[in-house]
């Protein structure tokens, strides 16, 4: 057989749904038959032909796991998928989390828990001590808690209404844990969630001079750094790299991120 140079760019690959795991009333995880090599914190674009394409976090890589809340037309269609159905995936895309230090504090707000599961597994395999803080408005909106409980880590839960774990924001037990760290220079906070939560965590980390990697959300269109739709402004605490002038005020979540590293 003759050999052609394959040059497929970033065309979609087909994945087949193996299992559908219900996480809560609104959220399910699709567990695929195939793996997807990826770093924790990277994302993928999932295409349902004729329906649409959206970005999602990667919750597991071998096999690929994607955790999806039913919040719109396309995610509703995804919730109708059954074992044996096919989906089309582009990725992994973007910059993921990097392992840093010996103590990891992982903070997930709502669906922001999704990429942290893979990150927790990855950090534990590197011998890093992991604590996980999950927060949500109420207990029905906490996701993947059973999956985190299977791992050798300390899990802290908070809800705004007190229906599970501590009542209050996730930053409360986080600050307590930061204060108890043996060496803050060897620790890193990894977070994913809504903007308000990330800004609060950034301020907290600045106060204690602790490294953090925050994963930002934005409405994404092209996913390729071209359309500019997902640009955001990063907090002043982030040091703009000298070779990326103008990036702090026009940071492309799809391309420069989604994770930001402040040391």
């Amino acid at each position: 057989m003759s050999e052609f140079r394959k040059n497929e760019g970033m065309r979609s690959q087909i994945f087949t749904v193996d299992q559908v795991r219900i996480e809560n009333e609104m959220t399910t995880s699709l567990i695929m038959r195939e793996p997807l090599q990826s770093e924790p914190g990277q994302f993928l674009l999932l295409w349902l032909p004729g329906i649409g394409e959206k970005p999602f976090s990667i919750a597991g890589i071998d096999p690929l796991v994607v955790t999806i809340a039913d919040v719109g037309k396309m995610t509703h269609e995804i919730h109708g998928l059954k074992p044996g159905d096919r989906v089309w995936v582009r990725g992994p895309l973007g910059r993921g989390y990097q392992a840093y230090g010996s103590e990891a504090l992982l903070v997930g707000g709502g669906y922001g828990a999704s990429p942290l599961l893979l990150l927790a597994e990855n950090l534990i395999s590197k011998g890093i001590n992991v604590q996980v803080f999950l927060g949500a408005r109420n207990k029905d909106l906490l996701i993947l808690t059973d999956q985190f409980k299977k791992l050798p880590l300390k899990l802290h839960l908070t809800t705004n209404d007190g229906s599970a774990g501590l009542q209050g924001f996730v930053t409360v037990p986080l600050e307590a844990a930061i204060q108890e760290l043996p060496d803050r220079n060897q620790a890193c906070v990894y977070a994913c969630g809504p903007k308000g939560m990330l800004l609060g965590i950034d301020a907290l980390c600045e106060k204690y001079r602790i490294a953090r990697q925050l994963s930002w959300e934005a409405v994404m269109r092209c996913g390729m750094g071209l359309c500019g739709n997902c640009r955001i402004e990063l907090p002043d605490t982030w040091q703009e790299p000298a070779d990326q002038p103008g990036s702090r005020r026009a940071w492309l979540v799809c391309r420069d991120g989604p994770t930001m590293f402040t040391q």
Binding site: N7, G9, M10, L45, W47, K54, R221, C222, G223, L226
Partner: peptide, 22 residues
């Protein structure tokens, strides 16, 4: 408003794009 996703990709020898003049 422009087009719905997908609006672009890298097909190997270049890009294809249609954002619908958003």
């Amino acid at each position: 408003k422009g087009a719905d996703n997908p609006v672009s990709t890298d097909w190997g020898c270049g890009l294809i794009t249609n954002l619908g003049l958003t």
